[in-house]
Design a protein around this nucleic acid. Structure first.
Lengths: 225, 225
DNA sequence: CCTGCACTCAAACGTATGTTTCAAACAGAC
DNA sequence: GTCTGTTTGAAACATACGTTTGAGTGCAGG
């Protein structure tokens, strides 16, 4: 965990603090004191706090997107022409995330928490950065989802994908806290891998849900095709 | 929207700005200048910025929790002894949210966005405040969910409830942005009510999903009962 | 040894924040 | 009209922030 290199020390500390407290709530002084590094080192090596945030994301997102691409490659080759199923696609994504080489034991939850924060905190610069750096694997995932759910209308699929993203980002971003609560209440220990194993069936079932309202909604003006 | 009373003007402005930008990213000076009110008024009327945040939540959460209680009362009475179904429970919650008396046309999305922020931003004081103020309706909702899904183990139910919360909080908290994107891409206009009408079937299907892994996960050490 | 260069360090800069102060304005009661 | 308690106003407070500065350090190559 503790490299002696200043840049990595800063990245390690920043990553952990950002995941714990969010971006605006983490000051450069917290980061540098945790990293045991001079305050000016951040601006010297990264240029600005925003650039540091980008660097933190790039460090784990680039290997992840590479892993993901090969996972999708393998999946599509295995299916030779036929579009992969929804379960296959979701599992490819999940395995890529879980199997990522981790820097430490907290790696996976930090990874997830940062992803959740990226979606949630409305940091304009981050959104822009992520869109232009990683739109390709994201677009490919969307394409696979589309081919795996041809029965859905574009609008239905759009919303259900958002629901999936939400369930995933939210759960994973709070995974530490949620695991702790569960252990307190029921005395059950859980790993991030197990959460993923429970999440995928949930998501798949939601995506494949019958698209009719099962209960009379009695909400004004709502008609779902 | 615009009461002449200082307290309400502050609450209106704070609510909107918090929903737009988050808590830490919104300064008291932004709030007071939007509310056309003196800076000191916030500390005079509320005591502190944190107390203002609590007041913003209390203003819409208290009526909501009251509405929710009566909705649950009606539902349980209608079922006379039998536990309400999952769909009924989810719909009761959804309708209570959607039918809330709104201060303005943006009311519902602000409401949702704030709820999402409360979950997402790790503001310790807010979490504590919400837990001790509104744990009763929340606990009741949990109890209804439990009775509606007796086939689930406690652990399974726990995680699936988290998935539901995530999908809901995330989608609703970004509902404005997501609606905008969909309109740009497909030219389809969507209301928050319609999102809810799509969300409930998704959630219900996820909760009722078969609890076996459908694909060999090939993730080390994972066994899901 | 000297010269460049990359890096570290303590200190300061300017700005923005939440909060406090205290005088002025206002309201209603007598 | 005068008094009393409440509310507003402009200004200042102390603190924290991201960033910049410039002197200092260590180390390579010549």
């Amino acid at each position: 965990m503790a490299q002696s290199d200043t840049v990595d020390r800063i990245l390690d500390a920043a990553e952990e603090l950002f995941a714990e407290r969010g971006f605006s709530e983490t000051s450069l002084r917290m980061i540098t004191s945790k990293a045991k590094v001079n305050l000016a080192a951040v601006n010297y090596h990264f240029g600005s706090k925003n650039a540091l945030i980008h660097a933190v994301f790039a460090r784990f997102l680039s290997p992840f997107s590479a892993t993901l691409e090969t996972a999708f490659d393998e999946l599509e080759e295995k299916c030779q022409g036929n579009p992969p199923t929804l379960n296959q696609t979701l599992w490819a994504l999940t395995e890529s995330a879980v199997r990522m080489p981790q820097r430490n034991e907290k790696g996976i939850s930090i990874f997830m928490r940062l992803l959740g924060l990226a979606y949630t905190q409305s940091q304009g610069h981050l959104r822009k950065f992520l869109e232009q750096e990683y739109n390709e694997p994201f677009g490919r995932f969307m394409r696979l989802l589309k081919e795996a759910t041809p029965e859905l209308s574009s609008v239905d699929r759009y919303w259900r994908i958002q629901f999936m993203l939400g369930a995933t980002a939210f759960t994973m971003s709070s995974s530490d806290a949620l695991i702790g609560i569960l252990e307190n209440k029921l005395g059950v220990e859980t790993s991030v891998e197990e959460i993923a194993a429970r999440l995928v069936p949930f998501l798949a079932a939601g995506m494949k849900a019958p698209d009719k309202i099962l209960m009379p909604p009695s909400i004004k003006g709502v008609t779902v095709a």
